[in-house]
């Protein structure tokens, strides 16, 4: 096993004598998308902000990529780490392209390279550069602003991305699209991402690992399935087992992940990109236990059975 990308050991922080984070230990493997999950006030944001030292930690060690993160000049450290916050933090007096170019310019990249990178990122975030590069943040929708925020965080190709409840302020439809975008970017770039949220569905959809936090400590960390199936404490069970969680899980998993390739079934095939909830609905409506599965081009690729939904 290679060295973890981020390693927090015995980290603590208190304000006015009240411990917000106490003796926290956490290792995030390279390439993981680690979600810090917990109720508000559990210290997840503080923990995130100690990684890029926006909050100075009182004790413990933080290592990033094997190096002591508390050692280098704070600005140099932060320029290597992408940072996305809920309020987007886009500079209202700068155009979209200048906002995205912030860190590359702080790093004195040559201007042609900055421009090429901005172009590339706008396309990666599916924002047409000809339309969006010259706009000001207030001319964008909330979802577009947050896309620009993500593009800005990725601009200098940081090895690590920190996201602090980035999608909490956007409407559910936009949030769904942004989550899909993050999942895609994570898959495509293989960057290590630490993502703070209190939304269990968001965590289950995105995470490769979840660290559930309560009162300044990590109470359980593991894969999403571990957390759901083997909660380590009543707190985790209560927090994760919020009402309708089963249905939520079905709503975030795709048929593609569960289908049995090459199997056959009767009837109209269901799209491989549909959610498991949609598959269940179709089974109930048609009173069948199996559905054929087709890709977007109509090619039947396999089948999914009722039992596969709960696998």
């Amino acid at each position: 096993m290679s060295e973890p990308m981020i390693e927090l050991r015995g980290v603590s922080k208190s304000y006015n004598g009240r411990a917000v984070v106490g003796d926290l230990t956490l290792a995030v493997p390279r390439g993981a998308l680690c979600v810090l999950l917990g109720p508000s006030g559990c210290g997840k944001s503080t923990t995130l902000r100690m990684i890029n030292r926006l909050v100075p930690c009182d004790g413990g060690t933080i290592r990033i990529d094997g190096e002591d993160a508390l050692r280098p000049p704070v600005e140099a450290l932060r320029r290597r780490i992408g940072y996305v916050i809920q309020s987007t933090g886009l500079f209202p007096h700068w155009r979209v392209d200048d906002n995205i170019a912030t860190v590359p310019r702080l790093l004195h990249w040559p201007e042609p390279r900055v421009r090429a990178r901005v172009h590339e990122l706008l396309e990666m975030l599916r924002l047409d550069p000809r339309i969006y590069a010259g706009k000001y943040p207030h001319q964008l929708s909330g979802g577009e602003q947050q896309r620009v925020g993500v593009a800005r965080a990725l601009a200098a190709d940081p090895e690590l991305l920190l996201m602090d409840e980035p999608f909490a302020a956007v409407d559910p439809v936009t949030r769904d699209a942004l989550q899909a975008e993050i999942a895609r970017i994570h898959e495509a770039t293989g960057k290590t991402i630490v993502f703070v949220t209190h939304d269990i569905a968001e965590a289950l959809r995105l995470a490769t690992m979840i660290a559930v936090m309560d009162r300044g400590r990590v109470v359980q960390s593991g894969t999403p399935l571990d957390i759901v199936e083997r909660p380590a404490s009543d707190f985790v069970r209560d927090f994760v087992g919020v009402q309708g969680l089963g249905l939520k899980l079905l709503a975030v998993r795709r048929v593609r992940d569960r289908l049995q390739t090459g199997e056959q079934a009767d009837g109209e095939p269901i799209d491989a990109g549909a959610t498991l909830a949609e598959a269940l609905a179709a089974m109930v409506a048609r009173r069948v236990g199996r559905l054929a599965v087709a890709e977007g081009d109509g090619r039947v690729v396999g089948a999914i059975a009722l039992g596969d939904l709960v696998r």
């Binding site: 926006l54 140099a76 932060r78 916050i85 933090g89």
Partner: peptide, 13 residues
């Protein structure tokens, strides 16, 4: 806004 200041610091200004 405090968020802007934080974003600026967070990016390493």
């Amino acid at each position: 806004p405090e968020g802007l200041r934080e974003a600026a610091q967070g990016m390493g200004m």
